[in-house]
Computed example of a mutant assay.
Amino acid sequence: MGRKSMGLPDGVEARGEAVRIRFTWNGQRRSEPTPHKPTAKGLASAGSLCARVKEMIKLGVMTDDMYAQMFPNSNYNLDRKTPTFGEFSQTWLNSRDIVKETRDNYLAILNGVWMPALSSRRIDDITSADIRKIVASIEWDSPGIRRNAMDKLSSVLATAVMDGHMSRNPCKSMPRAKLPKRQVDPFERDEAERIIASMYEALIGRTQIYAAYFEFCFFTGMRPGEVRALKWSEVSEEKKRVHVCRQIVKGQLVERIKTKTVRDVLLNDRALHAIEVARSMASDGAEFVFTTAKGPGSWIASDSTTKKYFMASLVRLGIRRRRQYDCRHTYATMCLMANMNTAFIANQLGHSVQMLLSTYAKWINSTSDWAELSKL
């Protein structure tokens, strides 16, 4: 039985609960889904849509973008179709040269914050007002999380602008949230010495490696993840330096460091002493410098392990609780108080000089305050 005898309008076909329309465009037969149901009213509407499409094609006014708007669920790949936010975000993410942990973080932000509202939107249709509405509708856990989400969205849209899909980045009209900067809270030199001595005295057996670990942290300023990832092959006791080229992130070795720039850190006598202690405790074939495990391929995966011994020492000595990361700040401030060259300190820490000056301005000033006052 033909279509006419079934009462279907020309170019309309019903497939189960779906209704499609058929026509020829650019020399190809097309069959596209419609939002209509196979009822009398739905079939009539589909027939009207089909007639309108054929008339637009006949008049030569059907464009790629118009086709995409009329048939958003089409399988037809338009050569010049403007991508949706979801499509472009996936392309953007795939093109990034980043480690798995960073990729997972980006993906979680995109899927958790922006995809629910923007995934099917053409990327050039997204406006600043749209973004403001989304931001206002979310109960953010902290200003930092909100800013991080905005930064990722801005990166995606900035790339879309460079690729010619958008004329401007709608995030540019939205000011970047300012966050209170975490205060640097270093230990006094005397406190650092007491912590190290207490650990060497209290820890026995293989756990004494943690005393050497913190002596090394206090007197090199290396990041905790960099110290835990340090291998014997990167230690030169003769040249008094170590090569910093990897870190541990969430228990996994990552073959890069935070600033993505490898560096050599020069070792003072105290750092060399820590290396000597670690060397005396190292088992045959040990790969990593600071580890309690025997054999190759073992590292301290979590900072909770070192934290346990560190906090126990602070409690034992009655020293105010601070983070392990403050060992790094302690090294930086000790160097500054000793009037060492700022460029040298910045290189040791893996900072830019500008970052060093902004982070430790208080201690830089304090080294010269009394000298300046004496000029009066």
Rank of each mutant, 00 (worst) to 15 (best):
G2L: 09
S5L: 14
M6K: 12
P9W: 08
G16M: 03
R20L: 13
W25Q: 00
W25P: 00
G27K: 06
Q28T: 10
S31V: 12
G47F: 04
V53I: 15
M56E: 08
I57Y: 02
K58E: 13
K58Q: 11
L59S: 10
M62I: 02
D65I: 10
Q69V: 14
N75K: 12
N77C: 08
P83A: 08
G86C: 08
G86S: 06
F88E: 06
R103N: 09
I109R: 09
M115T: 07
P116M: 12
I134C: 03
D141S: 15
S142V: 13
I145A: 14
K152S: 11
S154N: 09
L157C: 09
G164M: 09
S167N: 08
S167G: 12
R168I: 15
P175E: 05
A177G: 09
K178I: 09
L179D: 05
P186V: 04
E191P: 10
A192M: 09
A192W: 03
S198C: 14
Y200L: 02
E201M: 07
A202L: 06
A202G: 03
I204Y: 12
R206T: 10
I209Q: 04
A212R: 04
Y213E: 01
F216Q: 01
F216S: 02
F216V: 02
E226I: 00
V227H: 02
R228H: 06
W232Q: 03
E234W: 01
E238G: 05
V242A: 07
V244D: 00
V249W: 01
V249G: 01
V254D: 00
V254W: 00
D264L: 04
V277S: 02
A278T: 03
R279Q: 05
S283N: 12
D284Q: 12
T291K: 05
T292N: 09
A293C: 11
G295V: 10
P296A: 15
G297K: 10
S298C: 15
I300P: 01
M311F: 13
M311Y: 15
L317I: 10
R321W: 09
R322D: 03
Y325W: 06
M334A: 07
L336D: 01
G350I: 06
H351D: 14
S352L: 03
Q354S: 09
Q354W: 00
L356C: 02
L356N: 00
W363Q: 03
S366C: 12
D369W: 14
E372C: 13
E372G: 14
L373A: 15
L376P: 11
